[in-house]
Design a protein around this nucleic acid. Sequence first.
DNA 1: GATGAATGAGAGTTCATTCAT
DNA 2: TATGAATGAACTCTCATTCAT
Lengths: 210, 210, 210, 210
Amino acid sequence: MSGTGTARGRIDKRQAILDAAFIVFAREGYALAAVDVIAAEAGVAKATVYSHYGDKESLFRETVSASADQALAENLAVVERLTGAGDELRATLETVGLKLLKCYCADRSWALRRLLAAESGQFPDLLDVIHTRAADRVAEALADRLARLTVSGHLHTTDPLLAADQFFALLSGPADKRARLGTRRTPDADLRAIAEAAVDTFLKAFGAEA
Amino acid sequence: MSGTGTARGRIDKRQAILDAAFIVFAREGYALAAVDVIAAEAGVAKATVYSHYGDKESLFRETVSASADQALAENLAVVERLTGAGDELRATLETVGLKLLKCYCADRSWALRRLLAAESGQFPDLLDVIHTRAADRVAEALADRLARLTVSGHLHTTDPLLAADQFFALLSGPADKRARLGTRRTPDADLRAIAEAAVDTFLKAFGAEA
Amino acid sequence: MSGTGTARGRIDKRQAILDAAFIVFAREGYALAAVDVIAAEAGVAKATVYSHYGDKESLFRETVSASADQALAENLAVVERLTGAGDELRATLETVGLKLLKCYCADRSWALRRLLAAESGQFPDLLDVIHTRAADRVAEALADRLARLTVSGHLHTTDPLLAADQFFALLSGPADKRARLGTRRTPDADLRAIAEAAVDTFLKAFGAEA
Amino acid sequence: MSGTGTARGRIDKRQAILDAAFIVFAREGYALAAVDVIAAEAGVAKATVYSHYGDKESLFRETVSASADQALAENLAVVERLTGAGDELRATLETVGLKLLKCYCADRSWALRRLLAAESGQFPDLLDVIHTRAADRVAEALADRLARLTVSGHLHTTDPLLAADQFFALLSGPADKRARLGTRRTPDADLRAIAEAAVDTFLKAFGAEA
DNA sequence: GATGAATGAGAGTTCATTCAT
DNA sequence: TATGAATGAACTCTCATTCAT
């Protein structure tokens, strides 16, 4: 059904190359990632990589874009859970905060951020694309939810986007410190503590009764 | 007094190489930074770079270490200004916050963080060294000040280190978003706004009257 | 039939590289033999040399091994001509001696011996391989023949291997002196004289009537 | 008396450099012998080597020449012991043969021969110098002694130089085989056996009663 | 005379990319 | 389309040699 040579086989190969590329780019960085190695990891010949993606730079762009799209989807799915759920606001915020943190601390997320940081000089446009297409949209979605909670009287924000940014900062900042750019795994218990502390501070500043 | 060939000349060359190395490493990344180019930037012959620093990796390590030491000194100098200054606490926090932000957003700081992110895979030990020798010490110093302000009744913290991390997160998080990994300059006015918003949230959460 | 890119073409290139390598190594020595030059001599790109042989050292080893195998084959073919041919023993010995001398004095032989001498410090294992795989086997084959001639009553040896070594020494020693490590060509007439003198001495010592 | 800066000190340094050069050239070969290393081995600065010997090539020539002169002296001293000593001819030949073999198999001798072989392409004139100034003179001296022994009726040679060459060949040839270009030490007992076998064959061929 | 510092030239090796099958 | 083979450009590092002190 999906033997070599079928259309399905082709697509499989494209995806296999993309997956292999992410692994190798993440591990070695753009410059040191050898196309041979990516091809070997994908189980195809080097020239096949070229026939699919043209050159190393294009392969890199597609790899990063695909990864960013995936990260965006995951984050949006989390943010959408933030609904005005009665008086369980704190618990909801903690749940959402923890889920966001887990997305943020996933290996793939760290790898993607390290790649972007590393190659921001060589590929400045990638940064723009990822930020506008992914990071900013998550912040906007979060701001939307905070605005709704403000309207419904559960929160007290004047600039929901700023509040969203600060909420995210209270989550990611302390996590950054422990994760050492993703080289250290942070236990779930620590993530939970970070999320609770973030929500605590956030609610003191933006809680309705504040 | 400092002609070619004197001991002073030698030291000048060492420093010139280090400066050039930072510029080139920051611009190109470790792998693409050619030693020829560093040497040219420093105005010396390629072999001179090797006679001073042994190999490219050692040069990189020394470059990063020197840069981290400098960043540490600047940050510590700022944190030390955070003294319990009567009822001008908000203004003091805003001043310190803004100065920290300016350090954080300086070109060299961004370049150093990008380098660390980029090469964390190749040089994982560098991350540890920089974090323990620089970043953590700034956080500790900030926590010390917050603890004193708590003792003096100006603040209300139970975990000063956590408060310090959150304070820093409220500053750096929103700045991160605007700066696009340092590829965009953030105007001073925006930095000031970020600092004020950070202090606002921080004081709501940790102010003495809270 | 053997166009570029065919399997045959690949093999041709391998051999061309090996031939070129021998020429250049012999002319310049291992250290001064530039891979560029070998590649140019073989009519391929430098990287092709690397893709076939990995690195300079491996190329050197394969070059020397191939050359030694060839020399072994030539010498064995000569020794096999030494059969108990009635009362023409002196003439047969002189013929075989002269042929051995010609092998010994061939340009390739000298080049190989100079290479081995030159690089015995860097590649001591090569010496062992060549000796056990080539030189010693020629001596053994020669000893075998001398033993047969002793059994058949044409010679009078007690230690055939020693006799073989001495026979070879009587040939090569005087030739060494004239050849100046192969930098001087020795005329065939001189080689013949050396061979005759060697056989004369040899038969006085080991002839049946002695 | 011989402190730094005295004339004696200078000469000491020249000699130290020469000794160090021989060691390093012998160990590494000409091309790989670094002048830094020679200087370090001699305990002087690299520039000092240059001020004494001009350049690497000159240093090499002087090193080899000095070594050849020393080898010549040792060999001549041995040959001079070959006098017509009554009916102890065999014993005398064996003694002289063994001493020649020991000279031939000395580490320095092997190192010198390997160097000459290695660099015969780069420095063909060195070969000529060493041969005419050293090797040939030993052969001539040996031929002189054999001629005298012929005149005195102890030997029976028609071409004393040929006989000398063959005598030397019967010694060095079998030794060559065991010594693997000097990489293997040959025990004295084996050298003695070789010498005795050589004399045995030699006397069968050139003994007076033959 | 002796030395530490500096350098230009060159070598081995890798790798993105192309081409013929 | 997929691939093995080939290549040119580039990069790290070394070393003989010179110069100022």
